[in-house]
């Protein structure tokens, strides 16, 4: 299909929603544009039309969902901004982290295992909240590093840390689920 070559289809996620290419994001704006564009392209809006349009609608809606998902998550958005600017955060190769950060992560991970074994849902819930708070701080730091200071090395470092933190949050949630079951 030639459709993927069309100018709009290949445009970057920010351009797709008519949003400025930066880390700081007005979530309401993204929400609004996502809905507006999805309302135009979604397969349900073309269900009674010809096959070609239905297929096209699915491709467009898929692309719009992908763009929305990428921009909505501060971590994914930062990775994407770095990629657009030509700065590979080197997630796979660069595993250097500040020692105190790594220490803290390891301690937290042990605590999760303990709480899970001990069935301590309350403590896990507190850890979940604490983790969310720390990540919100990191999200702020990303805006400062990428938009204001244009310090992309620093931005990449925060991205790598956030990946650790997301994984840990996921483990906390899994543990919570196991405790509740």
């Amino acid at each position: 299909m030639t459709i993927f070559d069309l100018e709009h289809f290949s445009s970057d996620h920010f351009a797709l929603f008519g949003l400025p290419r930066r880390q700081a994001l007005d979530e309401l704006d993204l929400e609004r544009m996502y809905r507006e564009i999805q309302t135009k392209v979604h397969p349900d809006k073309h269900a009674h039309l010809a096959d070609a349009e239905k297929r096209l609608a699915m491709q467009w809606a898929t692309k719009v969902n992908e763009a929305y998902l990428t921009l909505k998550s501060p971590l994914k958005r930062a990775e994407y901004v770095l990629k657009l600017l030509g700065h590979d955060p080197q997630i796979e190769r660069n595993t250097a982290m500040p020692a105190d950060f790594l220490m803290q992560q390891m301690e937290l991970r042990e605590a999760v295992v303990e709480c899970r074994a001990g069935g301590d849902g309350g403590a896990l819930d507190r850890m979940h909240r604490q983790m969310k708070k720390e990540m919100a701080g990191q999200h702020q730091a990303l805006v400062v590093a990428l938009d204001e200071q244009k310090d992309y090395a620093r931005g990449a470092e925060i991205v790598r840390q956030l990946m650790f933190q997301e994984k840990l949050l996921h483990e906390i949630d899994e543990a919570l689920q196991a405790v509740e079951a």
Partner: peptide, 20 residues
Amino acid sequence: NKATAEFAARRMNQSVQRAL
């Protein structure tokens, strides 16, 4: 269906641009 594929693509593009 084949004859209208490109037309459909242009229509879709146009409606997205109108949204923007």
